Measured scan of single mutants.
Amino acid sequence: ASVAVIAAGTQGNIFATSALRSMRFLQILRMVRMDRRGGTWKLLGSVVYAHSKELITAWYIGFLVLIFASFLVYLAEKDANSDFSSYADSLWWGTITLTTIGYGDKTPHTWLGRVLAAGFALLGISFFALPAGILGSGFALKVQEQHRQKHFEKRRMPAANLIQAAWRLYSTDMSRAYLTATWYYYDSILPSFRELALLFEHVQRARNGGLRPLEVRRAPVPDGAPSRYPPVATCHRPGSTSFCPGESSRMGIKDRIRMGSSQRRTGPSKQHLAPPTMPTSPSSEQVGEATSPTKVQKSWSFNDRTRFRASLRLKPRTSAEDAPSEEVAEEKSYQCELTVDDIMPAVKTVIRSIRILKFLVAKRKFKETLRPYDVKDVIEQYSAGHLDMLGRIKSLQTRVDQIVGRGPGDRKAREKGDKGPSDAEVVDEISMMGRVVKVEKQVQSIEHKLDLLLGFYSRCLRSGTSASLGAVQVPLFDPDITSDYHSPVDHEDISVSAQTLSISRSVSTNMD
Rank of each mutant, 00 (worst) to 15 (best):
K449E: 10
D374Y: 07
D374A: 07
S192C: 07
K376E: 03
L454W: 12
T369P: 01
R399G: 00
Y170D: 08
V507G: 15
L370P: 10
P316A: 09
R352H: 09
E285D: 05
D374G: 09
M389V: 13
L450P: 10
R168P: 08
Q263L: 04
E330V: 10
L179Q: 11
I503L: 14
K416N: 03
L179P: 09
T369S: 14
P372Q: 06
W167R: 03
K332E: 15
Y373C: 05
R392Q: 10
W167C: 13
I403S: 02
R265L: 10
D388E: 13
D374N: 13
E321V: 13
I403N: 11
R168L: 04
D490E: 12
D377H: 15
Y186F: 11
P372R: 02
I393N: 10
I257F: 10
Q397K: 06
S468G: 02
K449T: 15
I503F: 13
I446F: 13
S333C: 13
S319F: 10
D377V: 10
K394E: 09
G420R: 10
I379M: 12
G391D: 03
R352P: 01
S171P: 08
L396P: 08
I393F: 15
P345H: 11
K367N: 12
R392G: 05
D173A: 06
T369I: 04
K367M: 07
I354V: 12
P372L: 05
M259R: 09
S383T: 07
L169P: 02
I393L: 14
Q381L: 14
M389R: 14
D418N: 08
D374E: 07
D388A: 12
H386D: 11
Q473R: 09
I163S: 13
L370Q: 05
F359S: 12
G405D: 06
E368G: 03
Q397E: 12
R364W: 04
A166P: 06
R414G: 10
M432T: 13
D173G: 09
F366C: 01
R462S: 15
L360Q: 09
E368D: 03
L360P: 09
M278K: 14
L450R: 14
Q381H: 09
Q164P: 14
M389L: 08
P372S: 04
K358T: 04
R207L: 11
D374V: 07
R411W: 08
A181V: 04
L390V: 11
T280A: 08
R392W: 11
H486N: 14
P372T: 08
G405C: 07
R313S: 01
Q402P: 08
T294P: 08
E326Q: 14
R392L: 10
D374H: 02
L370V: 08
E368A: 13
Q397P: 07
V400E: 06
R406L: 07
L450M: 12
Q286R: 04
I354L: 01
S395G: 14
S171F: 02
K367E: 12
S171Y: 06
D388V: 09
L396Q: 09
V287A: 09
V507L: 09
R168S: 04
T182I: 13
D377A: 11
P475L: 14
K449N: 07
P316H: 11
G405S: 08
L396R: 12
R168C: 04
G239R: 06
K394M: 12
I163F: 06
K412M: 05
Y184H: 08
K394N: 09
D484V: 08
W167L: 14
F366Y: 03
G405V: 03
D322G: 15
E321D: 11
G409E: 06
I393T: 08
R392P: 06
L357R: 06
W167S: 06
K367Q: 06
H202R: 14
R411S: 06
S242Y: 08
S171A: 00
M389I: 12
K394Q: 07
R505L: 08
P268T: 08
T369R: 10
L390M: 05
L370R: 05
Y373D: 08
L390P: 08
K394T: 01
D377N: 03
V350D: 12
A166D: 07
V296G: 14
K449R: 15
Q297L: 05
A165P: 03
Y373S: 03
R168G: 11
Q381E: 12
R364M: 08
V216M: 01
I446T: 08
D173Y: 09
L198R: 09
S431R: 11
S301T: 12
K412E: 07
G407E: 08
T172I: 05
P372A: 10
K416E: 03
Q473L: 14
I163V: 09
L357P: 11
D173V: 05
R371P: 07
W167G: 11
F366S: 03
Y185S: 15
I393M: 13
K394R: 04
Q473P: 01
F308I: 05
R406W: 11
D377Y: 08
F302C: 08
L453P: 05
I163N: 15
S463P: 08
W300S: 13
R399P: 04
I163T: 08
K412T: 06
K376T: 07
Q397R: 12
K412N: 08
A362P: 07
G405A: 14
E380D: 12
T172N: 02
I393S: 07
